[in-house]
Design a protein around this nucleic acid. Structure first.
Lengths: 338, 338
DNA sequence: ATGAAAGCGCTAACAC
DNA sequence: GTGTTAGCGCTTTCAT
């Protein structure tokens, strides 16, 4: 690799490196003629400043580190994309790491990013993560950090999350208002936050309507397509179909679509389906999936904004907690009764 | 931010910084007792090495820069994911930048990454990119670079691309062999490589079978869902339906699905559809989309491997050109005739 | 207006 | 075995 340095420009012009350094940064010390000369020479030689060196003595890298569980999940890739967007607009670079839902990888990534002296961190915990020691250390080091979507609780950092519980309650109220009353829930494991909050929302919504809970209609499973398939088969075996299925996420909903069609059930006539998701995916379902919209771009943007503000010292030392409301997008997959 | 330095450890132990530096890197100079002491102290103080400083004098960052057009496109997010995977496994970090299909952003990203002194670059050109001057400069600077998917031709760098033309030819041969003969093509603009190669494959396949080309069955459009919708409407207006539509990509195919269903055509009975895509998306189509498989993980992995090998000096100065064969995955959306 | 000296945190080369 | 010196490329005093 052949890199041009400021000293090369200085030699070319027979001036000192300092003059060059100042000229390039448009320092008032330097005459405008000199500046022109320096800029011309740097163009000519193809000078690209060494940010590593700059960063070393400014102790600022203008770089944000992201730790995300899985880029193959479009929800997360949209989030990452919007974070990169927002960061770039605000003159920050982004180092993106993927934890693959592994706690150990998450930890390694974070140490790596701190080693790179990023100015701040955007972190979504892996599903496995339970040990929060590293986060206490980050707190001690006073490195700005914002959690998004999944939060290591009690660590005292800012966070941006969805209001899943109310999202479920509000959405189900709309469903009830349309005359539908028999709703099953394809739930995630209740150990995980996501699964827990969404299920609680479901239960609370039923309670409000004084609709008795049918335990057999809460079918617990994972978060992938096959889990949705299996849950639908379990539901069929009951010989007691609900009017609508409320799925814990879009992949589970898709699995339910598949099994439903294989079983000869048409959506939404024989059975309706809706679930957590985001607007961009509705089109990938036929009929279009009704979703409780978790706007990933909004989350990414907000988290990045909170972090960058925090780096700038906007919030002082008070962590900011942002809860994003979810909107119910009624599409083809659920048929209103009235 | 509060960061512990080697000198802090040195002070703590009343030794020189160099001893600490060597001990931490397990240098043979240092006694094992001293090493233990140093490691214990660094643990205790929560020392995290400053990679910026290390990089400054090693002139190696162990970091790869990626420039990708759009993370919202799952094809690219899978590629990015697999690159990060491969890089991480090989002890490289990744700085990911997104060009949003803008030439100017692409250029800015590259300069930024070079400024960060990444050890190498993985680049997919934006759709707009025509000016390749920056790439000549990179060549001069001897910075390793590998293009993937879209290549600034004539710049003399290694590349990893799909063999779109043969993918089309081979796939169409299978379709023909099953007895289907009337195939339309929803094409991209022929100005762009992708659009051009795929269309040429289509034409060549017809030629081989001595099937006359119907110009009105080559419907040119963009690469998004709505383009597929519009193309299908244009096709319907002809009152001369083909048996199968060959779509330039999955989003166009999806648009065709939508319009077909709205027009009361069922797939594959009334009309078959297949297109370029990758295996993970077939399930999102109902019926499952038959695809000419462009495996994004394979592309990401290979490109990352070629680059990392190149950084290690494996290929000398000879650019490597890798062409990935595409496999035809016959799914539900096309019905075999025999 | 320009430049010399010192230092960011770490490491390689060379003493002791 | 341990420490001293010098330097990575840049910027920030402080002289001139």
């Amino acid at each position: 690799m052949v890199n041009i340095r400021q000293s090369d420009i200085a030699k070319e012009l027979n001036v000192s490196r300092v003059t060059v350094s100042k000229a390039l940064r448009n320092h008032p010390d330097i005459s405008s003629e000199m500046k022109k000369k320096v800029i011309a020479a740097s163009r000519k030689l193809g000078y690209i400043p060494n940010l590593i060196a700059t960063q070393l003595n400014s102790r600022k890298t203008n770089t944000i580190g992201i730790v995300i569980p899985d880029l193959e999940n479009s929800f997360f890739s949209y989030i990452a994309d919007s974070m990169i967007d927002y960061a770039t607009e605000n003159d920050y670079r982004v180092i993106l790491t993927v934890s693959r839902e592994k706690e150990s990888v998450e930890k390694r990534n974070i140490e790596n990013l701190i080693g790179m002296r990023v100015d701040g961190l955007l972190v979504c915990n892996s599903q496995e993560t339970t040990d929060t020691e590293i986060y206490s250390q980050i707190k001690k080091m006073k490195i700005p950090l914002v959690f998004f979507d999944r939060v290591a609780v009690g660590s005292g950092f800012s966070s941006v999350v969805f209001d899943d519980r109310n999202g479920a309650i509000n959405s189900l109220e709309k469903v009830f208002a349309s005359g539908l009353r028999r709703i099953a829930h394809f739930a995630g494991y209740s150990g995980v936050n996501i699964g827990k909050d969404r299920r609680e929302g479901y239960l609370e919504a039923l309670r409000k309507q004084r609709i008795p809970v049918k335990k057999e209609w809460i079918i617990e499973g994972g978060y992938e397509l096959n889990d949705g398939r299996n849950s639908l088969l379990k539901l069929l075996a009951l010989n007691d179909l609900p009017e609508v299925i409320f799925a814990v996420n879009d992949r589970v909903a898709l699995g339910a679509y598949k099994s439903a069609k294989e079983a000869g059930l048409s959506i939404p006539e024989d059975i309706g389906i809706f679930g957590y998701g985001f607007s961009e995916i509705t089109d990938f379902f036929d009929p279009q999936l009704t979703v409780i919209n978790q706007d990933p771009r909004k989350m990414g943007q907000l988290a990045a904004k909170v972090l960058i503000d925090e780096i700038a010292g906007v919030h002082g030392s008070n962590p900011v907690k942002i809860t994003i409301e979810e909107e119910f997008l009624w599409k083809e997959s659920v048929k209103k009764q009235k």
